[in-house]
Amino acid sequence: MWPSDSNDHRVTRRNVIIFSSLLLGSLAILLTLLLIRTKDQYYELRDFALGTSVRIVVSSQKINPRTIAEAILEDMKRITYKFSFTDERSVVKKINDHPDEWVEVDEETYSLIKAACAFAELTNGAFDPTIGRLLELWGFTGNYENLRVPSREEIEEALKHIGYKNVLFDDKNMRVMVKNGVKIDLGGIAKGYALDRTRQIALSFDENATGFVEAGGDIRIIGPKFGKYPWVIGVKDPREDNVIDYIYLKSGAVATSGDYERYFVVDGVRYHHILDPSTGYPARGVWSVTIVAEDATTADALSTAGFVMAGKDWRKVVLDFPNMGAHPLIVLEGGTIEKSETFKLFERE
């Protein structure tokens, strides 16, 4: 490559080419490094809200992403107490504490309770926001300090006070009433709603903000990674510390309901928090249901409904859910995986 006469350092054509290619090469590397640096501006915040852990990953070219993340967290904490089953500041508690009375509520509350009842209707009660009494009976409320297996009689009695049709709405005056002793619990939908809010908040700060928010394993995409790539999301193995599938999302949401999230074991039997509103017992025959949807409210509510339904008839979930904009992956008891054709679209990059 080099002339044998090493004293030949004149400005020859060859030397110029070597020099300029090295110069260009180093410039290119520098530029790439710089680009990687500027892209790598995702601010990450982990905390607790909605009764679970929260992870906010957000980026903005316009304002400090930390400001966005903190605003998001604050709103999630607001929703936590506002729709809590037990908190004194909760609107839900206010409605439950005044049975057979019209309770005037704000628009946000009114819409969310109405949406919850609409999902109940849509799933024939597999998702039911009025299972408050049952959850109370099992101890799946508050700090889970009173967990126990209730007697059959107790469950029969509680079942009499369950049913979304006992929630009445007065559109004109934005009032809600619970009758027949039912108690509203928004645990199966408030998390999804809060996640959808996080995107709105991020976009209100910067319409080009990107990132995602995760709350207890449910995820809402704010915008594609670095503005153009999908976020890679693993689907948890319901029994091992492992991932059984990958999905790629540039928008939308994903939620999973699993029997491993909140449970206790008595005499070798696992009792988890996803109760079947028709039997009063934890839904059986399935380990987890993952739903991909356009929004997190749908994903959240329908992953709970899908869990309740899949143990009895997983085909119904696989065939019917895509028509509701929910694309399911089901892990049945024993580990068999079933998924809709539409779910497979998210398995590709």
Binding site: S53, G216, I233, G258, Y260, E261
Partner: peptide, 24 residues
Amino acid sequence: TIICVPNEVIIFFEEKTDYDTVTW
């Protein structure tokens, strides 16, 4: 990730993985 909700403790690895997050 290990999460203890009552104690509000999150335990996770700093190391990066081939996915961004996990649904559970």
